[in-house]
Design a protein around this nucleic acid. Sequence first.
DNA 1: ATGAAAGCGCTAACAT
DNA 2: ATGTTAGCGCTTTCAT
Lengths: 336, 336
Amino acid sequence: MTIKDVAAHCGVSVSTVSRVLNNHPDVSKEVRAKVQQAIAELHYVPNNSARDLVSSTIDAIGVVVRGSGNPFFTPVINAMDEEADKKGYTLISELISPSDDEIAAAAELVRSKRLKGIVFLGGRFDYTQNEVATLGVPFVCCSFDNRFGNLDESEYSSVSLDDTAEAYKATEYLLDHGHSKVAILLDSVDSNSIGTLRFRGYCAALKDHGIPTELELAVQTGDFSMAAAYDGTLELMRSHPDVTAIFSISDSMAIAAMKALSDLGHRVPEDVSVIAIDGIESSLYTVPTLTTLCQPQQDLGRDAVKVILGVINEGAHNEHLRIETTLRPGGTVGSR
Amino acid sequence: MTIKDVAAHCGVSVSTVSRVLNNHPDVSKEVRAKVQQAIAELHYVPNNSARDLVSSTIDAIGVVVRGSGNPFFTPVINAMDEEADKKGYTLISELISPSDDEIAAAAELVRSKRLKGIVFLGGRFDYTQNEVATLGVPFVCCSFDNRFGNLDESEYSSVSLDDTAEAYKATEYLLDHGHSKVAILLDSVDSNSIGTLRFRGYCAALKDHGIPTELELAVQTGDFSMAAAYDGTLELMRSHPDVTAIFSISDSMAIAAMKALSDLGHRVPEDVSVIAIDGIESSLYTVPTLTTLCQPQQDLGRDAVKVILGVINEGAHNEHLRIETTLRPGGTVGSR
DNA sequence: ATGAAAGCGCTAACAT
DNA sequence: ATGTTAGCGCTTTCAT
C-alpha cells in the first residue's frame, strides 16, 4: 500500500496524492475529497522512511536523561512525550548514567537518528561552546541552565528554576520556624551542579539570618540516590545530634532521610524538621506528609518541548523560562 | 556526506562500502580496512531513513505502556531500553491512559513507525485473535498474559508472574502470622485484570485456611492510583475497624494505604499489618519498611525484549516466561 | 490544477 | 572480490 496505489485507485498522479497528503493548496476540492476517501478506504499510511529520506532531518527530537532512576523525571518525560506527539513529533529518549558524557550521547543520537533538536534533562551546568558545537541542532536544558559554562544566552534555551532562590526559600522556611542548626542534604557543594546552586541559596539564607555556615552540616552524598541519602543522614545525626532541621535538595532524598531519622529514633517533626524541593507524588504519602516546594513537572516537560519546537519550526529565538515552585505545606516542619 | 562520498574517497564502488558497513564477508582485508578508515576520517554516519526505506520495516520495537504513572514500570522500561539498544534496536514508547485501547494504539504505532514488534506493558488479559490480527507483528505481554482471552500459546509471548500463586503466597504470609480478618486492596475483582487473578489467589489462601471470603473486605479502587488506594483504605477501616491485615496488589497502593492507616491512628504493624507485591525502591524507605514480594524489574524488561527480538531475528518460537518473586521481609507484618 | 520525472541514500540482486 | 544498476516510497521542481 503505497502512494502509487492510492493514485491508481483514484486515477490521479502520485504528485496529486502527495499534495493532498501535505495539505498543499493547488488541488481542486473534488479531487482532494476523492483522494482523502481513497486514503481512508485503503487504510493508507505514509512511509516515514521515504518521507524522511527526502528531507535531511526527521520530525523527531531527542531527550537525553541523566539519572533516569530519578522518580522526579518520569512525569516530566511523559509530558514531553505528550507535547511532542501533539505536534506530530517523535520523542526519542536516551538514558545515560551519571558518568556518561551527555553532549557526546546527544551528538551521537542527533547524527544517527537525524534529529531536529535535543532536550537535556538533568545535565551539567557548565557546557562550553566547543562542546555544544558538535551538536549541530538547537537544544534546551530542562531543569538547569548554563550558569557555569560559557554559552551565550542566544545559543541555547532553558526551562528551569532559580535554584539558588528556591533553596533560599526552603532554608528560610526552616529558619522562620525557629531552627538554627540546619543541615543540607545534597550531592555535592562544589561540582557546578544543582547542589552547588542550592547550597548557595542555603548559605545566603543562613547568612541573612546571622547564622554562620558550618560545612560539616552539608551532607554530600555524591549522587542523588536514596541509598546514599539514607547513609549520609545516619552519619550526620550520629556526629551532629543537635541538628534540628534538614533541607534536602530532592524529595526522594528527603524520604530516605526521614527513614534514617526514624531508624535512629528521631521523630519528625518533633525532633528534626525536614523540607525539600520537588513535589513528587509519593512524598504526599510519607508520614508525616513531606513539606516541599513543588515544581510543576508537567509544565517543565511541556514547556521544554514547546520551546525547542518553537526554535526548530518557527525560527523563534532561544528562550530562558524560569518557573516557580509552590510551597506544599506538609507535616514535616515543626517550630522551635 | 553519503556512502557515495566514502566510495569516491577510497576509489571503490558504493556496494563495496555498503558491504563493509553491513559486515558482509565478500570484501578483501585491505579494502575493508581502507573503507573503515575513510568512514572514520570522514565521520560518516549512515542515513537510517534510506536504509530503512529499502527494507520494509525498521530496526525498532514499540512498547505500549498503560498507566505510565506507575513507578513500578520505570525500571522495567529502562531495562527494555538498555537491552534494545544493546541489540541495535530503537525502542519507541507510547504511553496510553487506562481508558485507551492498547491494541489499537499498538497497531497504529506499528504502521506509522514500521516497527518489527511490540511489547505490551500492563495490558489486558483478554485479547482476542481478531484484535491481535490487526497488529501484524510479533508481540510480548510484559507482566501479564492472555489467560482470559482466546489466543493460542504459540501466537504470542509473555513474561509474567503467576499472579494467583504469588497472591496466594502473600495472603498466606499474613494468615501464617495469625491474621484472619484480612482485607485485599485491588483495582477490581472482576475485570479480567491482574486484580482478578490476585483476588483468586487471595480467596484460595483464605479457603485453604478455612476462612470464608467476605466480599466487603475487597477494597476495589477502580484503578492503581495512590489517591484511590488512600481513599479506599480510609473507607475500609471506618466500616471494618476489625481488619487486622491488608494485602495490597501493588507497593504504591500499599504506601498510600499505610498513610491512610496512619491518618486514622492505626499503627503498622501493631494494629494492622500490610503486605504487597512489587518491590519498588521507595517502599524500602517507608516506616516501617514495606514487607513485599519483589518482582525482578530489570529481568522483566530485559527478558521481554530478549524474547521478542528472538522471535523477530532468529525466528524463535513464542515463549512464556514465568518469573518468581522473592520475599523482602520488612516491618509491616506483625503476629497476632 | 494536474502530471511526469528526477532524485533523496541505501541495499541487494546481478554481472564480471 | 568488486562494480553496475534497479528500485524502496516519497517530495518537488518543472512542464503543461
